[in-house]
């Protein structure tokens, strides 16, 4: 009987020790989550813009930790915090690098846009006047046939359409898309010029 009482007492003491131990981890666990959230907040916008999938992974880890906090699994939180910290650091570094890379690409695109914006209207204008003259002609010149003229007209229409899209993209602040569309316009215009036997000065 005495042995049973002693065992019960020891079990009770062990339970108390466990509760006290767990309670003592509540504060650092709560703080660890708050710190991680604060760090994530500083990088969230850039991460959402440049690394949405990576951000999703970190958000999932954060949600897991919060669930552990609700369940009182402070030990689990403290065990998982180093991995989350590593993920957060990696996310932050990658977002900073990606942002710098994108900013450099945008600056480069702006430079390319300046050259294309000075170039394309002249190309379109030259094509328009030639297509207009040929369309008004009663017969086509030597070396030109209806198929070539139709091909040039289609190329000119595609170039104009791409150029309008490029201008709209640039106005909307998307220099990278604007340059891609402008290059498409130039390629289409180049094809039309070739069909008409026109050349550009070097």
């Amino acid at each position: 009987m005495k042995t049973i009482r002693k065992s019960l007492l020891l079990a009770a003491l062990a339970s108390v020790a466990l509760v006290v131990g767990c309670s003592s981890m509540k504060e650092p666990a709560t703080k660890a989550i708050a710190d991680a959230e604060a760090t994530l907040a500083t990088v969230r916008d850039d991460a959402a813009k440049y690394l949405p999938n990576d951000l999703q992974g970190v958000d999932a880890s954060m949600a897991d930790l919060k669930a552990k906090l609700q369940a009182g699994d402070y030990k689990g939180i403290m065990a998982a915090v180093p991995e989350l910290t590593t993920k957060l650091t990696a996310l932050k570094d990658a977002a900073v690098a990606k942002k710098a890379e994108m900013e450099a690409a945008i600056e480069k695109a702006k430079g390319e846009w300046t050259a294309l914006a000075a170039d394309l209207p002249g190309m379109v204008g030259a094509l328009e006047s030639r297509v207009s003259a040929l369309s008004a002609s009663k017969k086509l010149p030597r070396g030109m046939d209806a198929a070539k003229l139709d091909s040039a007209k289609a190329g000119l229409a595609a170039a104009k359409s791409a150029w309008e899209a490029a201008s709209a993209a640039f106005t909307a602040g998307n220099a990278i898309d604007a340059v891609a569309k402008a290059q498409e316009a130039k390629a289409k215009g180049g094809e039309a010029m070739a069909a008409l036997g026109m050349t550009a000065a070097k």
Partner: peptide
């Protein structure tokens, strides 16, 4: 005629 196939379009060249 050489460029357009039509002699009558010479005023376009003159205007330019």
């Amino acid at each position: 005629e050489q460029y357009y196939g039509d002699k009558m379009l010479y005023p376009r060249i003159f205007e330019a």
